[in-house]
Computed example of a mutant assay.
Amino acid sequence: MKKNHKLIEHKWVVKLGKGYFSGYDETKVTYVIDDMPGALDGRIVYNNLHEAKLDANNIGGQAEEVANKL
Rank of each mutant, 00 (worst) to 15 (best):
K3I: 15
G19W: 02
G17P: 03
H10C: 08
T30V: 15
G61T: 03
R43Q: 10
K28D: 13
Y20P: 02
G23Y: 02
W12M: 01
S22C: 12
H50I: 11
E51R: 09
G23R: 05
K3W: 03
N4A: 13
W12F: 14
V14A: 05
K11R: 15
N58L: 14
Q62D: 07
K6Y: 03
E51C: 02
E64Y: 03
D41K: 07
D41F: 06
D41Q: 13
L7W: 00
G61Q: 04
A56F: 01
Q62T: 10
K15I: 02
M36A: 12
I33G: 01
Y20G: 02
R43G: 00
E51N: 13
V29S: 04
T27C: 09
S22K: 13
K69L: 10
N4E: 12
K11G: 05
R43E: 04
K28I: 04
E64L: 06
Y20E: 06
V13I: 14
H50Y: 15
D34S: 11
G61R: 00
K15Q: 14
L7V: 12
I33Q: 09
E51L: 10
D34C: 03
V45S: 02
N68D: 10
I44V: 13
V45N: 03
E65I: 12
K28W: 10
K18S: 14
P37E: 12
V14T: 05
I44A: 05
Y20L: 09
Y46C: 01
I59E: 05
V32Q: 02
K3P: 07
L54K: 14
D35W: 01
E51F: 07
V29I: 15
G17Y: 00
A56N: 05
E9I: 15
N57Y: 13
V14N: 00
H50Q: 11
G42Y: 05
Y20I: 01
T27W: 09
A52L: 04
I59K: 00
K15L: 07
K15S: 15
E26Q: 04
K2Q: 11
L40F: 01
P37N: 08
K2C: 06
F21L: 12
D35C: 08
E51D: 13
K2T: 11
I59M: 08
E26D: 13
K53P: 01
E9W: 01
K69T: 11
V14H: 03
